[in-house]
Design a protein around this nucleic acid. Structure first.
Lengths: 189, 189
DNA sequence: CGCGTTTTATAACACATGTTATTATACTTT
DNA sequence: AAAGTATAATAACATGTGTTATAAAACGCG
């Protein structure tokens, strides 16, 4: 009996993601979504209970998009950790609004770096750190954390226009950082 | 002939700064300022041409506040660079809204890290890097940049709740970072 | 004390946001 | 084809924002 929806949930989320990507998540409003979809504001809030819900879904989508980009071409990389770091900061430079949405927006879920490191997906990365440094398991987390913070720092600077993107310079800077940190051996506490 | 203004520019800027500090710069609105000052919205926009102007002034004030905190107790520090870094990330942890206002807000003036390093105020810091590493002048900038990025990374993580503040851990992490980077000598390329 | 200028209060306008009635439309099924 | 239901359009409400017009108030100076 019912007609199918012309304005589907997917279409709305697509539009929302595009808006977030181009103009930042603050640009996601019911009316702008309607405009992009060529409809009135009604279908948008008919498919979702509230804009809040749309933003939550869009955040998840951006998160997936981000992690996909992080691991892009990582298998064929000779230095996977360095490649990962480069992907991270390239993303920040090329997708500034998304980066801010993900990590600087209040929609950030509040995963602590500590929690992130404890996740099983990160284990192989910690193993790489161990491989490169020869550090015992207990210390790898600290080195990884420092690497992450440094990479995230470059990314933040790029995403907020405190730095210009330059692939060559970025690679040089990161490899310097990695070189410095990877040379650390068991330190006294 | 004229009566003095009861609601002065300074009072307005004080209120604006407090709002930015407590709730973030987004909380700075004419009506909220009026409420804090115990007056109507009229005096606020009578002393300033627009809210934009108030925000510009408040940004400057926050910037001064920040740099004052950066150099707090730096003379008596035995490791000035480390102390500076610690001040930087402590500020981010203790003044999250201000940190976001300063570096993640669109009110950020767009000073590039490169430009920052070129400023004369930074010269003594570069000298410290040279002292600690023995690197020639040309390379100090690169090391300083890496140090800055790493410190800024920790700060960003703290300011956006991706990390819990722990003074001891912070000192340990920073000194590890500094140790790693300071050990770098003249690199190829 | 009163005059004149400056400051403030009141109130409203213009705009943008989320959300919701009410009405019209369109489609799927019988 | 008709009917009934899910969907969409129109329009409005409620709220929050910056800004401004108008009128009242307050103060320093003569």
């Amino acid at each position: 009996m019912p007609p199918k929806a012309k304005v589907t949930r997917e279409a709305i989320l697509d539009a929302a993601f595009e808006l977030a990507r181009e103009q930042g998540f603050e640009a996601i409003t019911v009316r702008r979504l309607a405009e992009r979809l060529g409809c009135s504001t009604q279908p948008v809030l008919y498919q979702f209970e509230s804009v809040r819900q749309i933003l939550e879904e869009t955040y998840r989508r951006a998160d997936d998009f981000h992690t996909a980009r992080l691991f892009d071409g990582l298998e064929s990389a000779e230095e996977p950790l360095l490649a990962l770091g480069l992907n991270y900061i390239r993303f920040a430079a090329e997708e500034k609004p998304l980066f801010r949405f993900l990590f600087q927006s209040g929609w950030f879920e509040g995963r602590t770096l500590e929690e992130l490191i404890a996740q099983p997906e990160v284990a192989p990365l910690l193993a790489l750190v161990g491989e490169a440094t020869g550090l015992p398991e207990a210390e790898r987390g600290r080195v990884f954390e420092a690497l992450f913070a440094a990479v995230h720092g470059y990314a933040s600077l790029l995403a907020n226009n405190a730095m210009r993107w330059d692939g060559e310079a970025a690679r040089a800077a990161l490899s310097m950082l990695f070189e410095g940190l990877m040379k650390l051996r068991g330190r006294p506490r």
